[in-house]
Computed example of a mutant assay.
Amino acid sequence: MKRIYIVRHCEAQGQSLHAPLTDNGLKQAAYLAEFFQTMQIDRIISSPFLRAIQSIEPLSKSTNNLIEIDDRLSERILSVDNLPDWFEKLQGTFTDLDLKYKGGESSREAMIRVTNVVKEVLESATEHTVIVSHGNLIALLLKSYQRDVDFQFWQKLSNPDVYQISYMGHEAVIERIWNAQP
């Protein structure tokens, strides 16, 4: 049975490409490595954003798996414009998957991008893969499997968060497996 672990990055100091983890985020990353300690991990693929890489570095070191960087796991760009009402605009993109703002990416485009990564993992010989990305993109990936994933679901994602997608044949079973640090 193939398993793909979808990991949302730990707490970060901002949203830019180079925003590092906070001190708490670094502690979360260490706990994330502990969380995966009893699980077999064959491969790690990450967004190129610093916060995603830093979130999974402790696991990479403890499992001796190199972190593969895949630009398709980058956070979705809603718009190149500064949108004061970005929250409402983002909400609209969960209802209308083709809604697109200046220089941005529609939900459907982002879903295709991230599901292509998962499809390639499924076609590979790897059995247990960790994919590290960002909240919006993860919500859209899960929405591609479960239509009821919506804006409220995205709002409830934690930093970090972990979902497991298990594949038995062509059937995908999705389950939230993250247990936040006590």
Score class of each variant (00 low, 15 high):
residue 66 L to M: 11
residue 114 V to Q: 06
residue 13 Q to D: 15
residue 173 V to L: 12
residue 157 L to Q: 10
residue 27 K to W: 08
residue 132 V to K: 14
residue 128 H to Q: 13
residue 163 Y to S: 11
residue 129 T to N: 07
residue 80 V to E: 05
residue 27 K to F: 02
residue 86 W to K: 09
residue 73 L to K: 12
residue 19 A to I: 05
residue 63 T to R: 14
residue 181 Q to R: 14
residue 23 D to L: 04
residue 3 R to W: 00
residue 34 E to F: 03
residue 156 K to L: 13
residue 132 V to E: 14
residue 153 F to A: 06
residue 141 L to I: 01
residue 108 R to L: 15
residue 159 N to P: 01
residue 59 L to C: 11
residue 178 W to L: 11
residue 106 S to M: 08
residue 124 S to M: 00
residue 42 D to L: 09
residue 150 D to H: 07
residue 80 V to T: 08
residue 170 H to T: 11
residue 164 Q to W: 03
residue 138 I to E: 04
residue 5 Y to E: 02
residue 91 Q to E: 13
residue 75 E to N: 02
residue 69 I to D: 11
residue 172 A to M: 12
residue 70 D to I: 03
residue 26 L to K: 14
residue 49 F to T: 03
residue 42 D to A: 06
residue 127 E to V: 07
residue 69 I to Y: 11
residue 74 S to C: 05
residue 19 A to Y: 07
residue 129 T to I: 09
residue 25 G to Y: 05
residue 134 H to T: 13
residue 182 P to K: 03
residue 74 S to W: 00
residue 89 K to I: 05
residue 91 Q to K: 15
residue 7 V to D: 06
residue 78 L to T: 02
residue 130 V to A: 05
residue 162 V to S: 03
residue 148 D to H: 07
residue 146 Q to D: 14
residue 156 K to P: 00
residue 88 E to M: 07
residue 123 E to M: 10
residue 145 Y to M: 06
residue 25 G to P: 05
residue 133 S to T: 12
residue 35 F to V: 00
residue 86 W to N: 07
residue 176 R to P: 12
residue 93 T to V: 00
residue 46 S to M: 08
residue 127 E to P: 01
residue 96 D to K: 03
residue 127 E to F: 01
residue 104 G to W: 15
residue 84 P to S: 12
residue 23 D to Q: 12
residue 8 R to A: 10
residue 132 V to P: 11
residue 91 Q to I: 02
residue 152 Q to I: 05
residue 135 G to A: 00
residue 118 V to Q: 01
residue 15 Q to L: 15
residue 41 I to L: 13
residue 84 P to L: 14
residue 133 S to V: 07
residue 10 C to M: 04
residue 77 I to V: 12
residue 5 Y to P: 11
residue 83 L to A: 05
residue 151 F to W: 06
residue 150 D to E: 11
residue 92 G to L: 12
residue 19 A to M: 10
residue 178 W to R: 12
residue 28 Q to D: 05
residue 5 Y to G: 12
residue 67 I to F: 08
residue 135 G to K: 10
residue 84 P to N: 13
residue 182 P to I: 02
residue 46 S to Y: 07
residue 69 I to C: 06
residue 135 G to Q: 05
residue 11 E to F: 06
residue 55 S to K: 11
residue 134 H to R: 12
residue 174 I to L: 12
residue 2 K to D: 03
residue 14 G to R: 03
residue 67 I to K: 07
residue 104 G to H: 14
residue 10 C to F: 02
residue 177 I to F: 10
residue 55 S to Y: 07
residue 181 Q to E: 13
residue 101 Y to A: 01
